[in-house]
Design a protein around this nucleic acid. Structure first.
Lengths: 172, 172
DNA sequence: AAATATATGTCAGGTATGTTGACATATATT
DNA sequence: AATATATGTCAACATACCTGACATATATTT
């Protein structure tokens, strides 16, 4: 028997139990982050810039070390994007009064404006996804989550994926 | 007035409405994908390999073009990881009977085994996240989603983030 | 049969975002 | 004064994406 032979049999039902959630998470997250990508590229920024900008706005005055802890990246990796955000005038650094080693990060007016613009795009998608959960989808709690994730996915992807993956489940 | 001045004021409540969901999505997705990363690295694989392996298992016999459509990457990008998955004996290609140009992708026994191992790790996290949604968290539908995403996040991250970001909300 | 379209593969070079390791500097703490 | 902490920086490298150009085999159209 050849170990390298193709398995043509689809997977069993029980194996696929959570495949739907796994895939919904993948596609929902992709749609979610893509919203911001287009705006960011106008500024020559990427997702790394977005994350730094987001948390600097969310927690004005956080330190570089705290930011590294949140993002779980190295300081060398952070420094590149942080430098660009400072040069472009979206973020400023201040020495901490109580400890001169610490550099507190703050958004500028410009930085807050951009952060809010990006969040509002994502927020809109989230609002719509919640609004379109219809009540009869909630016999089990998992159905609310499924419906939400499904609604987070771009229309174009959703239709294509339903056709490719689904066993006849649809939300609206 | 200096445009580059630090804004020290935290954001208004209404601006932050969906910040919680935005951040939960970020951290939940990170925890979710990290499960598989450790196993994958034992094989010298990355996330790109995981995605290809996953959908080849999910839809045995799918074409290269279909896979590109799902993943939304270029064929040059796919070819590297696909080549490695074929060389390592996780995936095989067969000519389609009805159209000799198409290469149908199938998992091998080895490929299916690995795909299931990876899914089962993610599935376990999902199961636990659902199981720990307590019923009194569901006055609004959004709360079930919030609770789910919160539960998807690694314990270590969750505690740290609650301290850093939260306004006293806790799930259990 | 010849021309064109489609599905796939491959070469070459570039970008964004991460890594490791080594070292520098300023400030706090012991 | 010695050590620890917070940050910054230089250099080299890895991964996973990209664009553009070109090659090959097979289908389809004319």
């Amino acid at each position: 028997m050849n170990e390298a032979n193709a398995i043509k049999m689809p997977m069993s039902k029980e194996d696929c139990e959570n495949f739907r959630i796994i895939e919904l998470l993948f596609f929902a997250y992709r749609s979610f982050v893509t919203d911001a990508d287009e705006v960011l590229s106008e500024y020559g920024f990427g997702r790394a810039h977005h994350r730094v900008l987001h948390f600097t706005n969310r927690i004005p005055g956080l330190t570089v070390a705290e930011l590294l802890d949140i993002l779980k990246i190295t300081k060398q990796s952070l420094s590149r994007v942080l430098k660009e955000l400072i040069e472009s005038g979206h973020i400023v650094q201040h020495r901490a009064d109580n400890d001169g080693r610490k550099r507190l990060l703050y958004p500028t007016k410009k930085g807050r404006k951009l952060a809010l613009k990006l969040s509002q795009m994502q927020s809109k998608r989230i609002e719509t996804a919640f609004a379109n959960i219809v009540s009869n989808d909630i016999p089990r709690q998992s159905h609310a989550v499924e419906a939400f994730l499904q609604n987070m996915i771009d229309r174009s992807d959703r239709d294509f994926l339903d056709h490719l993956l689904n066993e006849g489940v649809s939300v609206d």
